[in-house]
Design a protein around this nucleic acid. Structure first.
Lengths: 130, 130
DNA sequence: TACTAAATGATAATGATTATCATTTGCAAA
DNA sequence: TTTGCAAATGATAATCATTATCATTTAGTA
């Protein structure tokens, strides 16, 4: 039978209850009121553990910080490479087909689709150069 | 008229002549023989500059390191979240449609499509847990 | 109640990236 | 050619997220 600490459970529930794809630091800030002694290292450790157990997923480093996702169903995101903003996009038939087709072509096990670009705010400012 | 240093030109050409989507460190290693005094900070500085100028593109942090791409045409990648391996996938009609449709839905200016998952090697080892 | 492995908090170490700053380079005007 | 100046550079320190270390605590079990 698997041990399951209060901290780990709280971190998992925190991740599952938000749609913002947070970082370790954000999770710590959320849980501090209820778990005043909770340590950042513990958050990181449990995120790694939850990821290894397949209960959460990492979105990789976005704008310098690793973001996590409590939704392990295959789905898609749009990410702003400038400010790190993340938007969900509905997982349409065409995206599923694309993921499957790319998986067949490359031999990869495709788990997520990330479209990257510039959000409305960043698109105006940063790209007035070319 | 724009100044254009030898270093910056060499970095740009290095990026354009490879398909491996390298890191700053890799570029430095490539150029060291021809530019023995080239410094890592200079590579970083010029990559930022080239990116700001729209001549190259960053793929963001992959497995802890920022990777760059000399190909600024919209295109698609498959990335292994475990080992960082990157594979190109041809930019099909369906991907273009997907990018355009997601752009309309979210208001983002979509520049690239990244499918993430596990490469054949990592798929075997890391995921035997669930 | 005592034992043992897992979990934790505190903190140091790591590693990629960025900032600082004095020096050098390369063009442009005199 | 010489001088002046902004850009570029090399060397190195600083930053910041993440990871490792380690002594201590916790929680389940014999």
């Amino acid at each position: 039978m698997e041990r399951y600490s209060k901290n780990r459970q709280a971190i998992l529930e925190c991740l599952r209850s938000t749609k913002i794809h947070p970082t370790a630091g954000w999770i710590l800030d959320q849980l501090r009121p209820a778990y005043p002694s909770l340590n950042l290292a513990t958050v990181y450790r449990n995120l790694i553990r939850l990821k290894d157990d397949g209960l959460i997923r990492s979105m990789g480093d976005i704008a310098g910080e690793e973001h996590f996702d409590g939704d392990i169903q295959p789905h898609a995101h749009v990410i702003c490479t400038c400010c790190g903003k993340i938007a969900d996009i509905p997982l349409t038939e065409s995206i599923i087909n694309l993921m499957e087709s790319a998986g067949r072509q490359t031999g990869f096990e495709i788990l997520a689709s990330q479209l990257t670009g510039l959000c409305p705010s960043c698109s105006g400012s940063e790209n007035r150069k070319e």
